[in-house]
């Protein structure tokens, strides 16, 4: 464990908790893409199946459990509890256009052709594009609430910190995982446009509005 990965994980946890709290306290999921949250729940489910087969550390196991619980709680709030506030007119990104190619790629490019490893690879590839429905929704509505912007900033920042973590691990212990690195770079690049707008607008208290 290094500081980059730790801060990255905490940033990820903060994003997940922030979103869950925002939906719960405002009792509304307006502006939130349910599809992205479904994809994240799928990412955590397929990635953390090793919860039952390998124990890394208390931190690792507890974070996995928290991520999975929060992901399903968020999906539940969006599609069940506050579904009346779900903005399905703007959450129209075709998620199957992400899941199918990613599923195929996971079969073609992976470290080991075993069920757990293919599912892990699937989750790594899927996570890199899972935010697209949310970014697409914001570009359609033309704006995002500031809390949603903070959520996206923390979520995008976590994988950017992981890239630094991978650089650090490569130079300090010769460890690298090319699949995670490439997917992590793709994921972070997808946020660049948003990062620019966030830094130039939201920081100064303006509303974030993506070019429609």
């Amino acid at each position: 464990m290094n500081v980059f990965r730790l801060v990255g994980d905490l940033s990820h946890l903060l994003a997940i908790i922030m979103l869950l709290k925002k939906i719960w306290s405002s009792r509304s999921c307006a502006g939130i893409s349910g599809k992205s949250q479904l994809l994240f729940a799928l990412v955590f489910t397929t990635r953390y199946l090793d919860l039952f087969t390998s124990f890394i550390s208390v931190y690792n196991t507890s974070m996995k459990v928290i991520y999975i619980l929060c992901a399903y709680a968020t999906v539940y709030l969006i599609y069940v509890k506050f579904k009346a506030t779900y903005d399905h007119n703007h959450d129209t990104f075709r998620a199957e256009f992400l899941v199918v190619p990613v599923g195929g790629l996971a079969f073609l490019v992976n470290h080991d052709f075993t069920p757990l490893e293919i599912l892990w690879t699937f989750s790594i590839y899927l996570e890199s594009v899972a935010i697209m429905p949310q970014l697409f929704m914001i570009s359609k509505t033309g704006e995002a609430e500031s809390i949603t912007s903070h959520y996206l900033f923390c979520l995008g920042g976590y994988r950017a910190l992981y890239i630094i973590n991978w650089l650090y691990r490569f130079y300090s212990e010769g460890f690298f995982d090319l699949i995670a690195i490439v997917a992590g770079c793709v994921q972070t690049i997808l946020y660049c446009d948003f990062f620019y707008l966030y830094i130039t607008k939201v920081i100064y208290g303006q509303k974030l509005s993506l070019p429609a």
């Binding site: 994980d9 212990e173 460890f175």
Partner: peptide, 10 residues
């Protein structure tokens, strides 16, 4: 290549 069989990252 330094790849581990168990993934120790979240």
């Amino acid at each position: 290549t330094g790849e581990t069989d168990t993934h120790d990252e979240l």
